[in-house]
């Protein structure tokens, strides 16, 4: 049986196609202004990769900030449930999921059976999300993809006091003027996000194992900051899917559960 999960996020739309829990294909496209068209494009891309037609799909479950725009979905679930389902399938020992996407950060606490006990979502603020790193990359004139690697070369922790993207940007500019090495500034940026995210996660209650998902979990510098902040190792999915696909993967599994359960 083949099902699909589609996560229409603030920046990217991700699709995961599964057959009997095994991943057949994934796709990701930019979520443009026309979310419906982005969803169609991502679906088409994933089906092509899987060598399948839409008629062969039993059930499509949508999730993500723009899920209401996905008219072809059979149903929808929140990112909280999708993340919980996806991560439990990959790391059954995980009790806390930290999801850092483009515009939102979330912390989810799970029971042993993978059900959600509690969750927290950042409120109206990009300082705990990927948009913050992007803004800082622009201010530093550094490629976003190089941020992680560069911050690992930092030899000094520089405190960043601002709690807001706008003020943090002026703080970065001040650090540049003070001739602070870019590597140290980038580490400060990652430390700031990690600080914000872990303080939200602590409100929900952090229990080991902790998994890091969402697009920002691809950033090795951020992972390093999170480890330092938490004081222990975190799990980051790689196989069978990358961290930004966990929501879509979870949605695909939920779709499968629904077909099996009727």
């Amino acid at each position: 049986m083949t099902t699909i999960g589609i996560d229409l996020g603030a920046k990217n739309t991700k699709v995961v196609v599964i057959k009997d829990s095994k991943i057949l294909a994934t796709s990701s496209v930019l979520s443009g202004f026309d979310q419906s068209a982005s969803a169609e494009e991502a679906l088409k891309k994933a089906l092509n990769k899987a060598g399948m037609t839409r008629e062969e799909i039993k059930h499509i479950t949508a999730t993500g900030a723009g899920m209401d725009a996905i008219s072809f979905a059979s149903d929808k679930v929140t990112e909280i449930s999708a993340n919980a389902r996806g991560i439990s399938a990959i790391f059954p020992t995980v009790r806390t999921v930290i999801d850092v996407g483009a515009e939102e950060g979330r912390a989810i606490r799970l029971k042993e059976d993978g059900k959600v006990i509690d969750f927290g979502i950042n409120e109206k603020c990009a300082a705990g999300a990927g948009a913050f790193t992007e803004a800082m990359a622009r201010a530093l004139e550094v490629d976003l993809e190089k941020m992680g690697e560069m911050s690992l070369k930092s030899s000094k922790a520089v405190p960043m006091n601002a709690q807001c993207t706008i003020f943090a940007e002026s703080e970065v500019v001040s650090l540049i003027h003070q001739k602070t090495p870019k590597e140290d500034i980038i580490r400060a940026v990652h430390d700031a996000i990690a600080d914000r995210i872990t303080s939200m996660a602590r409100r929900v209650g952090i229990e080991k194992d902790v998994a890091l998902v969402g697009g920002v979990a691809n950033n090795i510098g951020f992972i390093d900051s999170m480890k330092r902040n938490l004081g222990f190792e975190v799990l980051v999915p790689k196989d069978p899917v990358a961290p930004e696909f966990i929501s879509a993967y979870g949605a695909a599994l939920i779709a499968q559960d629904k077909v099996i359960g009727g």
Binding site: A65, T78, I80, S81, V116, F119, E123, K124
Partner: peptide, 15 residues
């Protein structure tokens, strides 16, 4: 933020 609150309610109800 009404939309975000409703999304949060969805997640809470699911949980």
């Amino acid at each position: 933020d009404l939309t975000k609150t409703m999304i949060r309610i969805d997640a809470f109800m699911e949980s």
